[in-house]
Design a binder for these strands. Sequence first.
DNA 1: CCAGAATCAGCAGCCAGCCGGACACAGCGC
DNA 2: GCGCTGTGTCCGGCTGGCTGCTGATTCTGG
Lengths: 238, 238
Amino acid sequence: MRGFSRTGGPSTPAPVGLAAAANGASTLLDVMRGLSGCVIETVERGKTIFFPGDPAERVYLLRRGAVRLSRVYESGEEITVALLRENSLFGVLSLLTGQRSDRFYHAVAFTRVELVAAPAGSVRRAIEQDSSVGLLLLQGLSSRILQTETMIETLTHRDMSSRLVSFLLVLCRDFGVPGSEGITIDLRLSHQAIAEAIGSTRVTITRLLGDLRQAGLVQIDRKKITVFDPVALAKRFS
Amino acid sequence: MRGFSRTGGPSTPAPVGLAAAANGASTLLDVMRGLSGCVIETVERGKTIFFPGDPAERVYLLRRGAVRLSRVYESGEEITVALLRENSLFGVLSLLTGQRSDRFYHAVAFTRVELVAAPAGSVRRAIEQDSSVGLLLLQGLSSRILQTETMIETLTHRDMSSRLVSFLLVLCRDFGVPGSEGITIDLRLSHQAIAEAIGSTRVTITRLLGDLRQAGLVQIDRKKITVFDPVALAKRFS
DNA sequence: CCAGAATCAGCAGCCAGCCGGACACAGCGC
DNA sequence: GCGCTGTGTCCGGCTGGCTGCTGATTCTGG
């Protein structure tokens, strides 16, 4: 046990098989919850969901919160490959082949997280039984790809200032909650965490965030960043 | 017409429906070729497959060659989001929702390319009729995600030397053909193209490649790069 | 098949931006 | 109280971006 609690089995014994197909409004969450062997888990902030080297046997759907996927190097350095938002699918490696394979990412709960986990075999069977499941999973993965590619765009910006701004905009899209003064990013982000995500250092992030704050573009209150005007911020990079 | 020739319709009227399911060895290519409205296209090096702003109505499977997906900015700058290898799925945006949506990437044939294109509706219908299609597409997308995330790893390396080396290794994996002296990357890469892919500049790439060549790690002959020993090269970054 | 055009490769010099390391201090939980 | 994590700041040094130029290679249209 890795420090997460289980509320065993599907909380709602949702309909499987053709039932889901009949119901056009069915969601990925419904589908996952209906799978045999499915487990709903709660993981506390900072706890690991899976380690690199663990066997990849389950597929996860992030129901609530944020998950960080990262790569760990021998040097101890850790770089963030993705910050997953709600409704993201992850751990899909296990679907890839019939072969046993191992995780090579480190998945950590970035906030308190609720997730639905189902064995890869179950997922495969469900797809075979009910074609609409396949379509839903495909849509889930497609949107993951788009998110990831946006991140690549962010990372190819040359100067750190542009990278940071671009990253903040991504976060607004994925984790932003609109408020009276602008959009607040609903994550407690340390400068270190940002640095690991955009390939920079803690010190540089501190400096650049300070610049943005002084320019009146963002506000930072207890690790929560508020972007006053995303459009104005976007003009920060050509 | 965007400068590509069509060999209309499926070349082999492959079995659709449950037939594919029965045949466990069926591939993504077989499936795509069997779809109604499917078209096989040949695109010459440098020609565009779709422009940003084009309606997204088809899904593509890259059958032969390489395709570059890039983002174009008002400034005229262009950054590469993905270099797709054979058997990659792209244009999946069209699957996402029932909504009409537009491309926001620029897809260019990086080499002479053969691709199979099918209307998104057809793909959706095929999934409903035959569940094994969904599974194959899922596997295709999963491997796309892994490729993309590898690219993120490459881009978060801080110094350009590491980034270049890491990128070369990715290219070896995706486009490498083993030869007597090492692995040759089967693409004609200009320094500019590399720079656009790893977020650097032409001049820097020229210098760094020069360094690698002088160190006896790579050889460059008419834009084709040969990596003598990938393992030795990998040691170039900590 | 050739000539001109366009793209590509290589070199050098300048300088800003960022990394690395170090240090002080503020919160926060134990 | 003490330790730990996170923030803010300073400074020296070097990487890598920018500009400008030249010669080589490739593409294109007659």
